[in-house]
């Protein structure tokens, strides 16, 4: 049977398998971080979550970080700092 070629226009995606971080069993004494993506209402949402969490749990430290722009990835320096200074991190958008 004669055939004709057909083409895939999508290009290859190169991926690297990654695993998720191990889940924590308790929050007591952990360093808690918040990453605010700077959308209009993200700070209200995240501060509310922070207040509720800190009422219930005794964290070691609580830190708050902001991205430069809600639409851009956090800078490598910021991600490094968050990773070094925290055990668990909460992030959210608030449109």
């Amino acid at each position: 049977m004669k055939t004709i070629p057909v083409y895939d226009p999508r290009g290859v995606v190169e991926t690297e398998p990654m695993t998720t971080a191990p889940r924590v069993k308790t929050l007591r004494g952990l360093r808690l971080g918040f990453l605010d993506n700077t959308k209009w209402n993200a700070n209200k949402l995240l501060r509310g979550v922070r207040d509720r969490l800190t009422e219930k749990h005794a964290f070691g430290t609580v830190s708050y970080y902001r991205k430069e722009s809600f639409s851009r990835s956090a800078s490598a320096d910021l991600i490094r700092a968050i990773a070094a200074e925290n055990d668990v991190v909460v992030t959210a958008i608030g449109d």
Binding site: I4, V6, D8
Partner: peptide, 25 residues
């Protein structure tokens, strides 16, 4: 499908309606 490269793309029998084939993909 993501891993498929264009050069590996398949062939289809001659006479296939290519307009519809590409829509279907």
């Amino acid at each position: 499908a993501v891993q498929q490269t264009p050069t590996d793309a398949a062939s289809v029998p001659e006479g296939t309606d290519l307009t519809e084939w590409y829509y279907s993909r």
